[in-house]
Amino acid sequence: MVQRSLVSVVDDDESVRESLPDLLRQFGFAVQAFSSAEAFLASEFVSQTNCLILDIAMVGMSGPDLQQELTRRRQAIPIVFITAHGDKTVRPRLLAQGAAECLFKPFSDDALLEALSNALGMR
């Protein structure tokens, strides 16, 4: 692994932005965390991001909104959605719209690693 893949985390929950990057670094990824979709879009990391871990329900622009915006901008970044809502019907819809995976909180570190591997392997 010459260059570490960049995984960007977009979640309005602070504890997620706190804990997830540490785990991702343990996996060996480079990590950038953003508190909102708008903040991510405004950053310089959009084009450098190899995989996006994206919360569905956020104040302001939601996860799916961001997915649409990226599609509009032709930024084909694999997306792993995460959500604390237990609505299982949302997963097939998101996968159909091109998401790599949709994880329900709480998820194990192994499940996350597998999802990321799949997402990056797709590239």
């Binding site: 929950d13 785990l23 604390a84 237990g86 709480p106 570190d109």
Partner: peptide, 22 residues
Amino acid sequence: IAHEVNQPLSGIMTNAGTCLRM
């Protein structure tokens, strides 16, 4: 309730996983 509880649970699992790996 699920949302409220899942949020901290998620943190717990992530942090615990990270901790073990560290």
